[in-house]
Each structure stands twice: as C-alpha cells, then as structure tokens.
Design a protein around this nucleic acid. Structure first.
Length: 108
DNA sequence: TGCCTGATTGTTGCG
DNA sequence: CGCAACAATCAGGCA
C-alpha cells in the first residue's frame, strides 16, 4: 500500500489565468517520464497491432498496457526516465546554482 | 515540516 | 501548429 489516489490531480492544463507559479526563465524542462519512453517503444507496437488506429485509441491502449506491465517491465523505461531525470538534475543544478549571476540573456 | 498543485514530457492525427 | 487522453515526475509554494 504505497499510496494511490492523491487528490484532484487532473486539470493540469487548465490555463485559467496565469501568474500563479512563476516560471523562471531558466526553468529546466523536467526529464521525460517513464511513460514517454514506454510510448516510444509501444507506440510502434500498438500501431502495429491496431493498424489505422488513431491517437485517441493509442493513448488509452498505451496507458492500459502500461499499467499492465510490472515494475520489472517498467524497469527499462523507468531506467530511461531516471537517466533523463539525471540530465534534468544538471539543468536544475545550473538553474538553482548560477541563475542570476549576471549572465543575463534574456530575450530569445 | 509536510502536503498539494501546477507545470512539463512525448505519442499520433486532425482541424 | 497546437491540442486531445495517457501516466509519471518533480520542484516549489503555502499552511
């Protein structure tokens, strides 16, 4: 029992107003999720099993299979996610570290 | 000090 | 060209 069901965790892209969490200009884009890598591999497989399938189905199918996998199967994907996360750590480090040391840049 | 929420990532296919 | 479910993930902000 680890923990399931967190809370109203959905509305993620509900652009309502803007200006809540201030996104820094150096905010590193989080590493990809295990799902991303999983999709990268299954996407081709799912499509092969469902020729002519559109994203709507693929997306759901992907999620279904994803959960069907065990930590063991997700391992390789999680490993990739962890690897990417590591990459993100570097960006995050530079983001928290330097940040405003004078560099500036802005624009572009 | 701890929970929670928002933001981000990538897939495909279409309007 | 961006969004639509799908899941994960994390970092910061507020109580």
């Amino acid at each position: 029992m680890p923990k399931e069901a967190k809370t109203t965790r959905k509305v993620t892209k509900g652009k309502a107003d803007g200006g809540k969490k201030k996104k820094d200009p150096n905010m590193p884009k989080r590493g990809l999720s295990a799902y991303m890598f999983f999709a990268n591999d299954q996407r081709d497989k799912v499509r092969d099993d469902n020729p002519g399938i559109k994203f709507g189905e693929v997306g759901k199918l992907l999620g279904e299979k994803w959960k069907a996998l065990t930590d063991k199967q997700k391992a390789p994907y999680e490993a990739k996610a962890a690897a990417d996360k590591k990459r993100y750590e570097e960006e995050k480090a530079a983001y928290t570290a330097g940040g405003s040391a004078g560099d500036d840049d802005d624009d572009e």
